[in-house]
Design a protein around this nucleic acid. Structure first.
Lengths: 140, 140
DNA sequence: CCCCCATATATGGATATTGCCTATATAGAA
DNA sequence: TTCTATATAGGCAATATCCATATATGGGGG
């Protein structure tokens, strides 16, 4: 007992079900995709690569999940797409953000800011419970 | 079109399926419970109330979900419980964190810190795309 | 030519997680 | 007695996620 199975390396953390820590950040992919599309219209495959910028490890990014997010957002009119067949290679679907998508992106920013504060609050409490007791001893 | 249905108030944000923003923070409840139990052993009902400290709105906290997290963590030996029937009122299950639970809590802290940085990275990019263009205009 | 690889998109299936509703029980207040 | 607060728990449908796999195009090596 007492062996800590730290099956994540915090950059490409664990998959599947396991006892160890790991928040589900899957839905966080949506605002990231919207932000990338606001920067520049592009297609799914390139978006997947650009997601690494937001801490999605390449090993963590599942094409199925990514494309499903994009299609779901298209159903919701947050993005729009058209086929791009002019260039060589397999046909690609060019995505662009809609006005509605931009509005949702603003809502996401508020939520993300709120959640950032929740994480900060947790870390602050964590540190005060595990690190400050040592300090308290040191300063009489 | 263009009407933003902001169905969350960011403190007790939306439930169920909707098009608007909302990251799933459900699993974040686990480290919060562990941290609270590290502070003091107590029972599920009180933990639910203490969760508000970490941004869980009282309307958002579902007893079913909370107790399920606790039982799951007990299966995983992260917490331990015993029935408390001495006091009046309905029997309560007193939970305490285990050594294993404390180790997992440390792993959670690393993950949460990592995720905090992801959110910060997003917000930074968001601001540079939506707020800085105005500044650029203002400074020649 | 054939095979393999990178690019690009998409689907199926098993499992995990969540939200919501409801059931159970105790005890005190109205 | 009925209502409310305390306290825990289960069922079920909807979602989400992970993983494997399928499809197609075109380039390079042998």
């Amino acid at each position: 007992m007492g062996v800590l199975i730290l099956c994540q390396d915090h950059g490409s953390h664990h998959k599947g079900s396991c006892r160890c820590a790991g928040m589900q950040m899957g839905r966080f992919m949506q605002p990231c995709l919207l932000l990338l599309l606001h920067r520049q219209s592009t297609h799914g495959y390139e978006l997947m690569q650009q997601l690494e910028e937001f801490g999605f490890a390449s090993s963590e990014i599942d094409p199925g999940t990514t494309y499903r997010h994009l299609r779901k957002m298209e159903d919701e009119r947050l993005v729009r797409s058209r086929w791009e067949t002019e260039q060589g290679g397999p046909a690609k679907r060019l995505y662009e953000i809609t006005a509605e998508g931009e509005e949702i992106l603003h809502a996401w920013a508020v939520t993300i800011n709120f959640n950032k504060q929740r994480l900060e609050k947790f870390l602050e409490q964590y540190q005060s419970q595990f690190q400050e007791p040592t300090n308290k001893k040191g300063e009489p």
